[in-house]
C-alpha cells in the first residue's frame, strides 16, 4: 500500500508538468481548432528566451513577464505570417506546416544555444515538502501556477467579450464575421495566448527536466494525451487529464508485470485509447448537440 501512495504522489508530481502542457494544448485548440504539433518546441524556445534574459541579469519575475510578452508577440506573428496565407489550404497541409515549425524551432534553438543540457532556476526553491522528496516546493509551486493559469483562462473565456468573440470565431467563423468579429485577428490572438501559456509551461517544467532543445518531445505527447483524455473542449478536463496521465503512467510501470517498466509510455497511451473508445469525446468533453 505504501508503494501505491508513493507512486500516486510521484504521478501527481510529474502529472503537474503534463497538466501544464495539456492546458496549453486545449487553449490553442479552443482558439483555432488545431492541435499544434510545434507547440512543445515553441514552449522550449520561449524557455530559452527566458534563460537568456536571466543570463543577461534580469530578475526572475521580470524575465518571466518579458518572456510571456515576447512569446505572445511571436505566436501572434507566426499566425499572421505563416498560417494566414494558408487559410483555405486543406487540413493536412496545416499539419505539414506544424511539422515544419517543429523542425525550425528545434534546429534554431540548437544552433543559437547548442544542445548541452542547462539547469534552469526555480522561483519556489527545491525544498522537499512531503512524500519523501517526491513533491518538492517546486512541484507544488508548479501545480499552483497551473491552477492559477487555468482560473484566469476560465474567467477570460467566460466573462470577457474578447473571450466570447474568440470562442465564436472558432466555433463558426462565417457567423462570427456576420456579427462583425475579426476572425483572423482572433486566431492570431489565440496563437499569441497559446504561445504565452506554452512559455509558462516551459519555464515551470525546465527546472525539473533541465533545459535543452529536445526537452519537450515526450512532454508534448503526454500533454496531448492528457488534453485528449480530459476532452479537448474543457480546460479543466485537460488539467485533470494531465494529472491522470502522470498517475496512470507511474502505476502501469509498477504494477503491470514484466513489460510494465519497459512500456510505461505505450501502456499509458493504450489505456487512454481504451478510454476514448468508450468515451469518444474524452472524460469531460462536451458533445455538441446539433439539430438538423
Amino acid at each position: 500500500m505504501e508503494t501505491f501512495f508513493q507512486q500516486v504522489l510521484g504521478g501527481i508530481a510529474t502529472g503537474g508538468i503534463y497538466a501544464c502542457m495539456a492546458l496549453a494544448v486545449v487553449m490553442i485548440y479552443q482558439a483555432i481548432h488545431h492541435l499544434n504539433l510545434a507547440q512543445g518546441e515553441m514552449a522550449m524556445f520561449s524557455t530559452f528566451i527566458a534563460w537568456q534574459l536571466l543570463q543577461w541579469g534580469f530578475p526572475y519575475w521580470a524575465a518571466f513577464v518579458l518572456t510571456l510578452g515576447i512569446s505572445f508577440a511571436g505566436g501572434f506573428l507566426i499566425e499572421r505570417v505563416v498560417l494566414k496565407p494558408l487559410e483555405n489550404a486543406p487540413v493536412l497541409s496545416h499539419l505539414v506546416i506544424f511539422i515544419a515549425l517543429y523542425a525550425i524551432f528545434n534546429s534554431l534553438a540548437g544552433f543559437i544555444w547548442d544542445f548541452t543540457v542547462k539547469p534552469f532556476p526555480s522561483p519556489f526553491g527545491t525544498a522537499a515538502l512531503f512524500g519523501e522528496g517526491l513533491i518538492g516546493a517546486h512541484q507544488a509551486g508548479m501545480i499552483l501556477v497551473t491552477l492559477i493559469v487555468l482560473f484566469l483562462l476560465f474567467a477570460f473565456f467566460r466573462y470577457t467579450r474578447v473571450g466570447l468573440a474568440m470562442r465564436a470565431a472558432a466555433a463558426n467563423p462565417e457567423s462570427a464575421r456576420l456579427v462583425g468579429i475579426r476572425v483572423g485577428t482572433m486566431a492570431a490572438l489565440g496563437w499569441g495566448m497559446a504561445a504565452s501559456i506554452g512559455a509558462v509551461a516551459g519555464i515551470m517544467i525546465a527546472p525539473v527536466v533541465f533545459l535543452e532543445p529536445n526537452m519537450m518531445l515526450s512532454i508534448l505527447l503526454y500533454g496531448f494525451a492528457g488534453a485528449v483524455l480530459g476532452g479537448l473542449t474543457s480546460p479543466g478536463g485537460a488539467v485533470f487529464g494531465g494529472f491522470a496521465v502522470g498517475v496512470i503512467e507511474n502505476l502501469a510501470g509498477t504494477y503491470i508485470p514484466v513489460v510494465g517498466a519497459e512500456l510505461k509510455l505505450p501502456i499509458a497511451l493504450a489505456l487512454i485509447v481504451v478510454v476514448l473508445v468508450i468515451k469518444p469525446n474524452g472524460l469531460f468533453g462536451r458533445t455538441v448537440v446539433q439539430r438538423v
Partner: peptide, 17 residues
C-alpha cells in the same frame, strides 16, 4: 448561422459585439 455550442444569451451578446 447559430453558434450551436454557445448559449442562447451568448449568441445574443455576440450580435452586439
Amino acid at each position: 448561422g447559430t453558434f450551436t455550442s454557445l448559449t442562447v444569451e451568448e449568441n445574443l451578446q455576440l450580435g452586439a459585439m
